[in-house]
Design a protein around this nucleic acid. Structure first.
Lengths: 121, 121
DNA sequence: GCCGTAGTACGGTGAGTATCGTACGAGTGT
DNA sequence: ACACTCGTACGATACTCACCGTACTACGGC
């Protein structure tokens, strides 16, 4: 259909509009860090509903917007779903190694957290 | 001599108490990022007053506390001054490469910002 | 003892944010 | 047309944060 000016277009910062402080702030949240970890692991475009997050739908929308507006993820509509992809190329070009280092740090910490309490197996 | 337990002892998180989210949050601020950049460049213990920050003393105290409580810096009193040092060893052990990558990203972005505006020369 | 300097503590303000619930819009299938 | 699913928008709330000013403490020198 011709819904001329559909709100189905999402605003993204250009590569050179991405700010390090915003990226770090976006990653400095447990829920968002988890989203980013999952996306990095799958390496394909994932819908928002793919993630099983401990928050409501509204809050999920909010977190994805923070990630998008900070330049960490790119979102596109595809039917009723909204697909999310990490902006690896842009981030790597701007801040070489940052994403991988943070991801590795997150994995490492998750490992420590999981191993805590005694149930290592 | 009622000052038995002087408040001259500063609380620091142990190495394994440092959380990635807190570190990222501490670094996700322009003023604090600048402090950390300066500290990394000097590589010695620096007093709070060494830094020429665009905020008041109270706010400076606040930022240093955030950095200390997140585990990014270690602070010790020495006379009237409070000396600050990056916790490089702890951060590198926990999150290998993270500090250097963020620092490099900050330098890179600072270069872009400085060169912006057209007056490249 | 007195004063200056370094930094803290406290109280307040305005802005941002993480969270929710409910109501709605856009697309797909029957 | 209808219903269903995915996600948005809006409003509300409670919390955090960056910032300030002022009053204060701790240390060192005169």
């Amino acid at each position: 259909m011709t819904t001329t000016s559909s709100p189905r277009v999402l605003e993204h910062p250009e590569r050179d509009e991405i700010r390090l402080e915003d990226v770090l702030h976006a990653l400095a949240d447990a829920v968002r860090l988890r989203i980013v970890r999952d996306m990095a692991r799958e390496d394909t475009e994932l819908s928002c509903s793919y993630f099983d997050l401990p928050v409501t739908k509204s809050t999920t929308t909010h977190h994805f917007r923070v990630l998008r507006e900070s330049g960490v993820v790119r979102q596109v509509y595809r039917g009723t779903a909204k697909l999310n992809a990490l902006r690896r190329d842009d981030l790597d070009a701007l801040f070489p190694g940052l994403l991988d280092t943070v991801l590795a740090a997150a994995e490492s910490q998750a490992g420590r957290d999981g191993a805590a309490g005694g149930a290592t197996a």
